[in-house]
Amino acid sequence: MVKKFLLMATLIMSGMFAEDAYERHCVPCHAPLPTSLQRMFMNHLLVYGGEHNFKAALKHYLRYPSKDISVMSDLFIDNFGIKEKSTLSDEELDEAIDIYWSKFKVFNKLK
């Protein structure tokens, strides 16, 4: 019980005092999931390709999440469900997505 409380407190605290929008609004909820944000990024990239497409599609999904347009497998959705609609402002959402893109983009990583 104490352990659970400590874990929750750590997650909440790390979210509250995170440096950027991505760390604040994305990481805390995705941390307990078995599929990493990196893997989700690659799934999304596989479908939407270029930067503008990627960002626009992700923003739309975060605003209007749906099983039909999710890039995750049915098994994943059945287990963890569809996320809640994002209540973030446009600016915050854009900032978080920009950071997400910069963090996991393929550019300059291949050798």
Binding site: L45, L46, V47, Y48, G49, G50, F54, K105, V106, L110
Partner: peptide, 8 residues
């Protein structure tokens, strides 16, 4: 058809 590594 599939954008592997984001490539079209």
């Amino acid at each position: 058809d599939n954008y592997y590594l984001g490539a079209r």
